[in-house]
Nucleic acid binder design. Structure first.
Lengths: 343, 343
DNA sequence: AACCTTTCCGAAATCGCTTTCAAAATGCAT
DNA sequence: ATGCATTTTGAAAGCGATTTCGGAAAGGTT
């Protein structure tokens, strides 16, 4: 316990400097000496001390991964997967991840020499914090969040939503609702924009009475949103801004006597754990969580190596996953399927 | 960027040693001097360098949090919540968390001076690794896993299961099935044990044809398990070893024309994100994820401070959460509810 | 054999903080 | 005032690496 570079040096009959050199693959070491040192190190089970090394090199080979402390329940799973992917990627580059929740303002003591850069995940990271970081020049990237001029990895919320409601339209729906937890959330706002653009591009009017939101951060928010929607209108389909809300909404629909997808089709967003096991299995927009994690660390590492690289926004596209919550094309219901005709 | 203890010393007109002392609340400093130093430090925005400090003190104030790389999908959410709680608790003690997935054997370079202890979460942590750690004397605790003689925080799987099936029995069920992904998993085995004990304690026979497992790590495992069960028997209720599996099983039941809970009652285990939004909302056994995280870091911190403390197993109890997947007492169906009688 | 390059390697300084040890300052009693 | 016991403080030695700089060894030429 505690074999230092000195011990290795002594055993190999060289100086600590030489040991350091061979262990760090520095040039200018005779092959024979290198072998001798390597052997000594191996025999002694030498492992360089992390603190000493980073004190000398000013590099910690560590990245901070921050999520906001209070975020919706479902996002535990979401960011958990981003985190896992990020860790895997980081590990491949010889980096470690320091995980932390950011509490309100979070002075971020950690950024002071403990980590080389930060990954901030989620759109509820305080804007003030982001601006502070940007100002202070620390390398960092945002994930699932963005701000002009800062490096970020974003989900194609608008495009994903567009595709989702286009799908609904293609199925023959004309009165398509939009549901979300609350509009203030950046992601939801973007998904809402995609919803509206799809409507417009297909010549459908945007009708405010077809959209409803729930209560900011309360469980059952989707249930509430759906009830509110039902009081105002009776769309034949809804696009819901995330899976959890969608599943809750489906419950409300069912309780209102509506069959899914026959009476009302629903598509969600995220394709997390819930979607495949929902009843009925939820058609939804898949967001590639690992891609978010992987890209985040790649980008961050690049920024660290090239500090003056101009900021970039990296957009990871989504994919519509069709399951059963939208059923078959609406019009197909009028003329029954050939095979069914005889039955 | 880079104000050191020397700068503070110079500005306060004292030596670095003195600065170090006041910043670490060491005794023997005149109040007046202390103020002067504090003021200088504040004005300069001094922040101690992490590496330098830990090199000198041999303490990193960092804990490693490890989960196995390949674990069932649903557990992302589960351990995400444990992690978040652990981080919060650690932070309150001035500690940070280094997150990592352990890949197969994982040499764990990190334990060499980077972290003061390890939290290993999940029961798929390789046993060899645990034994190695135990042998090497590193402070560590297991979460949701255990081994004789090692510190661990465990879920009361057996008790939770016992309570769950007791509930089913209380409702009047006599033929109760057991479903899980695969029996080799430690947690599932314990839940199975609880199932059997409940049967026995209530004078019901254990019938092997009432238990079925799915496929080890494949999605839809619960669906498969349920199908297998249905081929062998037709219980009036099932206890399923975890929520995801339960939800998948419910789907299979529904497809087999069974109504839940009328034809078959089901209760799960975990009470994760899925349970409340399942259809129907799942009666299940809640495991307190934050308690797991909190206790893990508390225990680990204690071990670090008192290295020779004897190993402990800490069991966190569960709680049966009643929702709708079990319906009302079986016998109550015969004589309809008074209020309904007239309808 | 003497000399000049190159190639290798070691001494020592450094990174920023903690801590021991002894000296300086202070307080108190005489 | 003087002496002694206490408090306070500073100088310097680590902690365990890396890295600069110059000297020693090795290799090549006349």
């Amino acid at each position: 316990m505690g074999v230092t570079i000195h011990d290795v040096a002594k055993r190999a009959g060289v100086s600590p400097a030489t040991v350091s050199r061979v262990l760090n693959d520095r040039p200018g070491i005779r092959a024979e000496t290198r072998e001798r040192v390597l052997k000594a190190a191996r025999e002694l089970g030498y492992i360089p001390d992390f603190s000493a090394r980073s004190l000398a090199t000013k590099r910690t080979h560590t990245l901070g991964f921050l999520v906001h402390a209070r975020h919706s329940l479902s996002s535990h799973s979401f960011y958990g997967q981003v985190l896992a992917a990020a860790e895997k990627e980081a590990r491949q580059h010889g980096y470690h991840l320091l995980f932390s929740t950011v509490h309100d303002e979070a002075p971020l003591m950690l950024e002071e020499q403990r980590v080389e850069g930060l990954i901030l995940a989620g759109c509820d990271i305080p804007r003030a914090l982001i601006l502070h970081l940007k100002h202070s020049g620390v390398p960092f990237v945002l994930v699932d969040n963005h701000l002009p001029g800062v490096n970020s990895i974003v989900i194609d919320n608008e495009g994903g939503a567009y595709e989702a409601v286009s799908h609904l339209i293609r199925l023959g729906h004309r009165e398509i609702g939009f549901l979300c937890e609350w509009m203030e959330d950046l992601s939801f706002a973007e998904r809402f924009a995609g919803y509206k653009r799809a409507l417009q591009d297909h010549g459908l009017p945007y009708r405010p009475e077809l959209v409803a939101e729930g209560e900011p951060r309360t469980p059952g928010s989707g249930y509430i949103a759906a009830q509110r929607l039902l009081q105002k209108a009776r769309p034949s389909a809804v696009f819901v801004a995330n899976d959890l809300t969608a599943v809750e909404a489906m419950r409300a629909f069912r309780e209102a006597g509506l069959d899914i997808p026959k009476d009302i089709a629903v598509v969600g967003f995220d394709d997390g754990d819930l979607a495949p096991v929902a009843y009925p299995p939820l058609t939804t927009v898949r967001v590639f969580r690992d891609a978010l994690g992987i890209q985040a660390v790649r980008r961050l590492l690049y920024i660290i190596e090239h500090p003056s690289t101009p900021p970039l926004q990296i957009r990871v596209f989504t994919k519509l996953i069709i399951r059963e919550s939208c059923g078959t094309p609406l019009h197909a219901q009028l003329p029954p399927m050939p095979a069914d005709a005889g039955a």
